[in-house]
Write a protein that binds this DNA or RNA. Sequence first.
DNA 1: AAGACAGACAACCGCGACCGG
DNA 2: ACCGGTCGCGGTTGTCTGTCT
Length: 334
Amino acid sequence: MGHHTCCNQQKVKRGLWSPEEDEKLIRYITTHGYGCWSEVPEKAGLQRCGKSCRLRWINYLRPDIRRGRFTAEEEKLIISLHAIVGNRWAHIASHLPGRTDNEIKNYWNSWIKKKIRKPASTTMTSSVSPPCSTAASDHGHLQTPFSVADHHQLDAIINQSLALPPAPKLATTTTGGQDSPPATLPPLCPFFMFDTTSVSPTSSLSPPAAHQLQHPFLTFTTAAMDMPTSYQLPPLVDGMSMGMAALDCSSLGEEGRGHDHDGNNGQAAAGMSNSGGCCYEQQEEEQLGHEQWDDESAQHLLMWDDDQDLTPSNLEVMQSGAHSLLFMGPNDHA
DNA sequence: AAGACAGACAACCGCGACCGG
DNA sequence: ACCGGTCGCGGTTGTCTGTCT
């Protein structure tokens, strides 16, 4: 296994970075920036490959790095995001300012290790699986009824709809212009989550209000993390191909919170490949602390099923039903 | 005190995407 | 269209440190 092409020409040092090397890199980056990483080592006087420099800078030396233990809110956010996007650490990290993908990845891995070492008696084998492990491991090869073209369409839809304007086209009218998009959400639209605190049933469907749609996790994390709510997060679930049902979790009761509504506990709850799988199993909820998964945090998340057109009337219904934990499942009911 | 063990963290490796020639 | 260079990402391994026996 050779080194990278950028490392072949010269003898590069490996292993831990010394304080002197750190200083050299910091000094160079702060004065020159890092246009081309392959040139950084030479210009900075380092016996490292550019890739190593990049990694060191991104994961350790960057001035905006947030160090220290993860807060409960960050932990919650990581778990939530992981349940949705899987092992896309960079994506998750982009929602946690100051945290690196490597840090999150390491944290997650130790978290899993911790769980694996737990006695298997508490729950099923799924207790060792990360929440929605199928999403975690299969994000690159999800088995869905969608075609590649569908995924591209989904990407476009989701990227436009989540966090960043323009907001999704809602079924406000039935009259469409000649080149206007469909009045209803496309049938392949898998799911959307909106902060319902900024979308009132009566006014939400007007374009200005639609632009107020916010990233769902932003709402309850920014306050805790002392971040401005105007912080722009990247699209959360680009490339996702899961369906999400608008479920009233209150109907499931306490037992239902740790299990999917098909009655499959454990394994189903651990993976989104099962229909209606709940993202969080009981044990994980306990580990986080019940109060962290209170309804407060989730009641503003609105979800709806992909075979359901969004109209003013059902929006109101769904919003009133938006409650408790996030329940989501694959688009397997088609 | 010393060894074993586990957790946390840092760094490397391989692969794929992207881009310019 | 092809190719090589570069970058970014995720998986994995290595190392350090604290705790337990």
